[in-house]
Design a protein around this nucleic acid. Structure first.
Length: 523
RNA sequence: GCCCCUGUCGUCUAGCUUGGUCUAGGACAUCGCCCUUUCAAGGCGGCAACACGGGUUCAAAUCCCGUCGGGGGCGCCA
């Protein structure tokens, strides 16, 4: 009932307009990753949805680094993270490097801020020092679970007066700071994607605000940071949903008005467990090296849990920004479908202009030893690459598959002919056809496809071979393969490529034919 | 175990708010056909879903209750 009510509020156009007027001004959202590893696509999706929400509403998108986990956070991961976000083109308006009016944007540089709020909470009696050992707490927890209850901290250190506690701290005793929670009653809030969500506070014990190391716990730092940075909408993963009671209570203790929340469903692997390495690529970095375009990844991620109202699927970033609506985001978890990503990538690859296709493909071809160093790439090289890409782009769904296809242009090994190819070359017609073409091809300076067509006509007349008997020997003679390449594309590429300098030389058609004839004679 | 979230084709989703227009639409994958001297690409078509059980109603994918399934959380991690 409540849920339906809430949802309706957000969907009627009149109310929605009013809602927009009141809340859509000065929209501020943030993406707050911790630099403890490579950027996971699940997190990238969270970043994307935040970014989309900001851009759609002309708001501000903030990047904040949550590096209070001393053991796992590193500067290298932060750099990598920034690099990945830049690659995805999810530019932030405020954040590390860039700066902004609500900095610093690394939690590790905000410790004094948290401290001043802790003092205040302690003085007001809203928080207290706790000296319970981890072992003690573990024991209590286990007992609760064995009784079939939700483990909740007993709150026994509430008894200790602030004065006594401070003395113990000064004496060097280790302690944490906990928030006093009511331990009863209900708490609910309106989630932008889930509707009204309720919690029973009897399951909410006194959460740790400050660890014994003096560093703030996540749930404490976010609340302060989001408040001070004037975040209006917190869009994050569903795994944070159960943190809501303690965070809402912390907002209350701090007298900060809570922002709006939207909890996004998780991204799963095909076996319906959280997407992880054993499902395949999971980090943005990995998709990048696999030759997925950032535009395609973004497009796919946007479609994971959201769909534009017109049902179109191949979208540019601008399309998505224009149509994005957080209220239409799906509530249920989504399985990451590599096939669809690859299909989308193919669509985006095709939409690139030829020069961009060549540019994007070059690193992969260079790495495979097929293209010269960048400084040795002449204008003719690039022109040739563009032409080649026009053809090969149809064959692949990511750039890293390109070298394998390009290889067919460079490789000409008659020692590795398969059985079928052998048979074709040994056929009666093959002999006649090859002899005929060998004579004629010498007189042609540059074989293009028109000349090739003329040639085949003449050969046909001369030898009486036609159809399969004519074309299959020619294909094998030129490519050493029985299938794969369109000869009308292959021939001009090889002819022009043979005039360029590559790490592996490319043979022109005349040479290929000569070699094949020698090869047959040897036998 | 307890708490929270979630459930439409194999997968992502449209439809659910305002019940009838849904013999449930699209896309990926898959299968078949066409095109083609090969392989692809492309074109056309097929298969395929409202988790289950109860209500409410003339009418339920849509509203209500329950069951079951899936996920998340239960840290001095974030």
């Amino acid at each position: 009932m409540q849920l339906a009510e809430g949802k309706r509020l957000l969907h009627t156009s009149q109310d929605s307009l009013k809602w927009k007027k009141n809340n859509m001004d000065n929209i501020r959202v943030r993406f707050a990753p911790s630099p403890t590893g490579f950027l996971h696509v699940g997190n990238a999706r969270t970043a994307l949805f935040n970014w989309l929400f900001a851009r759609h509403n002309r708001g501000t998108y903030i990047l904040r680094i949550e590096d209070t986990d001393e053991e796992r956070s590193t500067g290298e991961y932060e750099e990598k993270l920034i690099e990945d976000l830049e690659w995805l083109a999810l530019e932030w308006d405020e954040g590390p490097v860039k700066g902004g009016g609500s900095g610093p944007y690394r939690q590790s540089q905000r410790l004094n801020i948290y401290q001043s709020f802790t003092e205040k909470l302690l003085e007001e009696g809203k928080a207290y020092y706790c000296f319970c050992s981890i072992e003690e707490l573990e024991k209590e927890k286990k007992q609760a679970v064995s009784r079939g209850e939700t483990p909740v901290y007993s709150g026994k250190c509430r008894m200790i007066s602030l004065e006594d506690a401070k003395k113990r701290i000064c004496a060097g005793e280790q302690g944490v700071v906990r928030l006093k929670t009511p331990g009863k009653g209900e708490l609910s809030f309106e989630d932008l994607v889930r509707g009204r969500v309720c919690f029973n506070l009897k399951y909410q014990g006194d959460p740790v605000l400050v660890r014994s190391s003096g560093l703030p716990a996540y749930n404490y730092a976010v609340v302060i940071d989001d408040s001070l940075m004037k975040i209006t909408h917190v869009i994050r993963g569903e795994d944070h949903l159960s943190n809501m009671p303690r965070q809402l209570l912390t907002y209350e203790a701090l007298s900060f008005p809570p922002p709006k929340f939207a909890h996004l469903s998780m991204v799963m692997g095909e076996d319906n467990t959280r997407l992880s390495k054993r499902h395949g690529a999971t980090s943005v970095d990995q998709f990048k090296t696999d030759g997925i375009l950032s535009a395609a990844l973004i497009n796919y991620l946007a479609l994971l849990g959201w769909a534009p109202s017109d049902g179109s699927e191949v979208l540019t970033l601008e399309d998505v920004v224009r149509q994005f609506d957080i209220l239409k985001v799906s509530k249920s978890a989504a399985i990451f479908d590599y096939d669809k990503l690859h299909w989308l990538n193919r669509q985006h690859m095709r939409k690139l202009i030829p020069s961009e296709q060549a540019k994007q493909s070059y690193p992969y071809l260079y790495k495979a030893g097929l293209m010269p160093e960048e400084q040795d790439m002449s204008g003719n090289h690039w022109e040739w690459l563009e032409k080649a890409m026009e053809y090969f782009i149809e064959k692949v769904d990511h750039f890293s598959d390109l070298p394998e296809h390009f290889n067919a242009l460079f490789e000409f090994s008659l020692d590795e002919l398969d059985v079928e190819a052998q048979e074709i070359l040994n056929s009666e017609c093959a002999g006649k056809v090859l002899k005929s073409i060998a004579d004629k091809i010498k007189k042609i300076v540059l074989l293009d496809f028109d000349k090739y067509a003329e040639l085949t006509k003449e050969i046909k007349a001369e030898t009486g071979c036609k159809g399969k008997d004519l074309f299959r020997p020619l294909r094998v003679a030129l490519t050493t393969k029985t299938s794969g390449l369109d000869l009308d594309k292959f021939i001009p590429l090889v002819e022009e490529g043979a005039r360029l300098v590559f790490p592996k030389p490319m043979l022109n058609c005349a040479l290929r034919i000569t070699k094949v004839i020698d090869h047959i004679k040897l036998k």
